[in-house]
Amino acid sequence: MTPNAVMDILQVTVLVLVAAGATLVVRTRDRVRLVLVLSVYGMLLAILFFVFQAPDVTLSELAVGAIALPLILLLTIAKVRKPQ
């Protein structure tokens, strides 16, 4: 198999996974579960950027979308939780 064909298959697979991930993020309604699904979506996006030959964007998306953004979301959820 030529390298171009392998790249094509890889890219199509990851694109389908990203589309499925986006649908999953939108369909999740529970807040804490949403944070975890968003983190997984961030990692899928990072893999997609890597397969598109962009390692810089991969680093940014991994650090931000899979770590910093879910942490910010978790802290916000903790702030608006009803005191029990």
Partner: peptide, 21 residues
């Protein structure tokens, strides 16, 4: 839920990154 809305905004933003690349 306002928090779910903000997360959906994140998803829409991520589509622009994919388009750029």
């Amino acid at each position: 839920d306002l928090i779910h809305q903000v997360v959906c905004l994140i998803v829409v933003q991520s589509s622009t990154y994919v388009l750029l690349l």
